[in-house]
């Protein structure tokens, strides 16, 4: 409702407030698959704190999450599960594809992996690396926040 009515000053401020609220308390869903999951956990740990962005609560249930960080390689067997978890997330939702394997299949260009998780779910941010260090992941997350704040991503 707040995003579609044009020209009304009060609606625009509400829209901005909504976007601010969404970025400042984005809850990630636990979708750590492989090595990138360890770096994701390290990002949530004390040294590269995710809690300063309001994101340290990794919700186990997708129904309570906004952000799905696909951390790791997605195999053929896992792809339907990935899609199901994504479908269970309520709008607005965003997807960060973390790592080379999630973005493009990485170094494993073979029968077993889905070559890029964007074949299965729509992705907003790709974070390259094998695995991307916590700084890269944080850069990706903050970029997502900026894009939402500026209205570029309209979910």
């Amino acid at each position: 409702m707040a995003t579609t009515a044009p020209g009304n000053l009060m609606m625009t401020t509400v829209d901005k407030a909504a976007r601010w609220a969404r970025t400042r308390s984005m809850f990630p869903a636990t979708f750590g698959l492989a090595c990138c999951a360890i770096e994701m956990m390290a990002t949530g740990a004390a040294h590269y704190d995710l809690a300063r962005f309001g994101m340290e609560v990794f919700r186990a249930s997708p129904r309570q999450a906004d952000l799905m960080i696909v951390a790791g390689r997605v195999s053929q067997k896992m792809a339907p599960v990935l899609r199901q978890v994504f479908d269970q997330m309520p709008d607005p939702k965003w997807v960060i594809s973390m790592g080379a394997c999630a973005s493009t299949g990485g170094m494993f260009n073979n029968y077993a992996l889905v070559q890029g998780v964007d074949q299965v779910v729509p992705v907003d941010i790709y974070v390259p690396g094998c695995p991307p260090g916590p700084q890269s992941l944080l850069h990706g997350i903050l970029t997502l926040h900026d894009k939402i704040m500026s209205g570029e991503i309209n979910n």
């Binding site: 896992m78 170094m107 029968y111 077993a112």
Partner: peptide
């Protein structure tokens, strides 16, 4: 199990011996 099967043994046959470490 099998939800993280990456075909690493197949990939290992395509990479040469000094690249095998990355796999």
């Amino acid at each position: 199990i099998g939800y993280l099967h990456t075909g690493m043994e197949k990939t290992g046959e395509q990479l040469n011996f000094s690249q095998g470490g990355t796999n």
